[in-house]
Write a protein that binds this DNA or RNA. Structure first.
Lengths: 116, 116
DNA sequence: GTTGTATGACGTAAACATACGACATTAATC
DNA sequence: GATTAATGTCGTATGTTTACGTCATACAAC
């Protein structure tokens, strides 16, 4: 079977899912944390700190770059990756809004039938 | 090739990735939003509101239930699903901590070589 | 120009996710 | 007990992700 047509979901739901997917692998979480904490952000250095081959790390980097969550700047022979901080702030807001819904649900209040 | 051994990443990174994965599909985002907004949360009603077959929705529900993000209470012939609000608050905190890192990076400051 | 090095692109195998029809299960109803 | 209705499970087809070796490219140094 084919996948669900994405048009059947709202743009907000798709966007949140897309960003969540970017964080859905520990390697990518680790990459973001590295970029946030290190003062150097050279591709090779990132790969060296992860238990994955350089090829695989490069793939994860491309995936994050495709979403514009990170930016790569070529500096001679090396490439320096950095977080796209403004976009991260946007994503932060999106997740905050979603979590606000999820943590204060209207469902299953005492008046309802179910009480799980 | 086999996947990276998860033990090569920290428990925090794994946990965040696991929860992000739960939100990495628009259908699951939609389900959470439905459970948060509706006062009824019967399995059949949820499926009826999504552009997916009842079987597929049931699968997504099981996935969320396996992570304990939602709870199901059997009420006769129907099953009522609800958000596990305390867990959602925990997850909210985890993401908040992560985003705090990602939005205030130490990298690529003016003193650094790269300026992307 | 040749060599060496950092990087991304390509190919591909294995694992996983998605989607749904058909069947099994369970409970209410007749 | 037979029927109907709401759910979940199983099987399975298809698409996607993950991982890595190998190759191509591009720059620097000689």
């Amino acid at each position: 079977m084919t996948y669900a047509r994405l048009t059947d979901f709202t743009a907000e739901q798709q966007q949140l899912a897309r960003m969540a997917k970017a964080l859905a692998h520990p390697a990518r979480v680790a990459i973001i944390q590295l970029l946030a904490s290190k003062t150097t952000c050279i591709s090779g250095d990132i790969a060296a700190e992860l238990p994955l081959s350089r090829t695989t790390v490069s793939q994860h980097l491309q995936e994050l770059k495709a979403l514009d969550l990170i930016r790569g700047e070529i500096d001679g022979l090396t490439v320096c990756y950095c977080l796209n901080t403004p976009l991260w702030q946007q994503v932060q807001q999106q997740f905050a809004g979603f979590f606000a819904q999820a943590t204060t649900p209207a469902s299953c209040s005492p008046a309802d039938a179910c009480n799980c």
